[in-house]
């Protein structure tokens, strides 16, 4: 009990509301989060639909605009052209598709590994828990970015490997969170009851433990997406990630940074798109966290 909790004495809800109703209500009232979510949806829609409406193909080279002096944004090419004379707008949209997809998929990979690992460790307890969490600890202290880089360098630069590499980095936090939750849930009566009724371990984990760890997991997942997108663009920026003919915002920024003195638009457009989506994702993530865990107002 903190001094703060005294601030709303007996503000008990008039009628029962579920945690999720309550959280949704709080989330919808958070203007920053709602604006961010809407912006994000619009941005994703533009990235998905934009290329279909554009008269330019992703790999179409405009020979008259091959020189960067002639590639500035114009009526035909709103974002300008890149160093190979290709339309930048279409490339930014395609890059967005890849970046967002990597963000969602790799987060999903991290989610699956982390939740399974954490729930198992927490539920089994004892020696198994010890060993499993010790592994997590050891992996935490590794300079992981370096391994991702090595992985990308040595095993070819395909997009599938990016998911694996990023997923392998990001699952650690998730495992810790889920384990902590599981440990505290395990001792609760309804788990005991299920166990007494002869329900198997896997079923207890799936049916009773996981649904109850959902809150923190949702919060963490929303906050992990921007981190993952950042990681992907970081790898791509170094030239180790997404490869031609595919592109991503990280790749585009990297190309732009090389030409920024003569063709600043090549840096500015993908940077703006990346920054806006990261901004929005973080705001949505913060909003979800505040909605599910309304501790400080």
């Amino acid at each position: 009990m903190t001094a703060d909790s005294l601030s709303a004495p007996a503000a008990a809800p008039v009628r029962g509301r579920s945690l999720w109703d309550d959280a949704l209500r709080r989330l919808l009232r958070n203007r920053a989060a709602v604006t961010a979510a809407v912006t994000l949806l619009m941005l994703a829609a533009v990235c998905l639909i934009g290329p279909l409406l554009s008269p330019h193909a992703i790999d179409q080279v405009y020979w008259d605009r091959l020189s960067l002096d002639a590639a500035a944004p114009s009526w035909d090419h709103w974002f300008g052209n890149d160093a190979n004379g290709r339309d930048l707008m279409v490339r930014v949209f395609y890059g967005g598709q890849i970046s967002l997809m990597v963000g969602l998929t790799a987060t999903f990979v991290a989610l699956i590994i982390g939740v399974t690992w954490g729930a198992t460790a927490g539920f089994m307890g004892g020696q198994v828990d010890n060993i499993m969490m010790r592994i997590v600890d050891v992996m935490y202290s590794l300079p992981f970015m370096f391994f991702v880089i090595l992985l990308m360098v040595f095993f070819g630069r395909n997009i599938f490997l990016i998911f694996v590499a990023i997923g392998a980095v990001e699952w650690l936090d998730m495992a810790r969170i889920v384990r902590g939750q599981t440990l505290s849930l395990k001792r609760r009566e309804f788990i005991e009851a299920a166990r007494a009724a002869g329900v198997g371990t896997a079923t207890i984990i799936r049916r009773h433990i996981l649904p109850n760890t959902l809150g923190p997991v949702v919060v963490y997942t929303t906050l992990a997406v921007p981190k993952v997108i950042l990681l992907e663009s970081f790898i791509s920026f170094l030239g180790l990630g997404v490869q031609e003919p595919l592109t991503s915002w990280g790749v585009l920024i990297s190309e732009g940074a090389k030409e920024m003195e003569t063709a600043p638009w090549m840096l500015i457009w993908p940077a703006i798109f990346l920054a806006i989506s990261l901004f929005c994702l973080n705001f949505v993530g913060d909003g979800v966290r505040d909605a599910l865990d309304p501790r400080d107002r």
């Binding site: 921007p226 920026f237 600043p264 990261l278």
Partner: peptide, 14 residues
């Protein structure tokens, strides 16, 4: 936090 340093760095340079 949101704008990665590989974006900030070129921009500052620019």
């Amino acid at each position: 936090i949101t704008i990665p340093n590989f974006v900030v760095a070129p921009f500052l340079t620019l």
